[in-house]
Simulated scan of single mutants.
Amino acid sequence: MTLTAGEKLSEHENPGEATIQVLEGRVELHGGGASWNGSVGDLITVPAGLHSLDAVEDSAFLLTVVKQL
Rank of each mutant, 00 (worst) to 15 (best):
F61Y: 15
P15I: 07
V46P: 07
L29V: 14
N14W: 01
W36L: 12
A18R: 07
T45D: 11
K8N: 12
G38W: 04
P15N: 07
A60I: 02
E7R: 07
G33S: 07
Q68G: 12
L50T: 13
L50R: 13
S39T: 15
Q21S: 11
N37V: 13
K8R: 14
E57C: 00
L29N: 06
A5M: 06
T2C: 04
E13D: 14
F61T: 04
I44H: 02
S59W: 01
L63P: 11
H12P: 02
L63A: 13
E7H: 06
S35P: 00
V56S: 00
L23D: 05
N14C: 11
E13P: 09
S39K: 08
P15W: 05
H12L: 10
M1H: 12
G6I: 10
H12N: 12
H30G: 00
M1I: 07
G49T: 10
L43P: 00
S52V: 12
E7T: 01
S10M: 03
T4S: 06
H30K: 04
N37C: 07
V56G: 01
P15R: 03
Q68M: 06
A60T: 13
V66C: 06
N37Q: 12
M1R: 06
S10C: 01
A60P: 00
T2L: 01
S59E: 04
H12Q: 14
R26I: 08
E24Y: 05
L3I: 12
M1E: 14
T45E: 14
E24A: 10
D54S: 05
D54G: 01
G49D: 13
W36A: 14
A48H: 10
G41P: 12
R26A: 14
I44G: 08
E13I: 00
V22S: 03
G16K: 05
D58I: 00
A18K: 10
G33D: 11
S39H: 07
T2K: 13
H30N: 02
G31L: 02
G25K: 08
W36P: 00
E24K: 13
E11Q: 04
S52G: 12
V22C: 08
L63D: 15
S35Q: 09
L53E: 09
Q68D: 15
G38F: 02
L62C: 08
H30D: 03
L50W: 01
S59M: 02
S59C: 14
M1G: 14
P15H: 08
L69T: 15
K8D: 08
E28Y: 00
V65W: 10
L63W: 09
V40Q: 11
G25R: 04
I44C: 06
E11M: 01
G25L: 04
K67G: 15
V46S: 06
E57L: 11
F61K: 03
D58M: 04
K8I: 03
G16S: 10
D54M: 06
E7Y: 00
S10R: 09
L43V: 15
K67S: 14
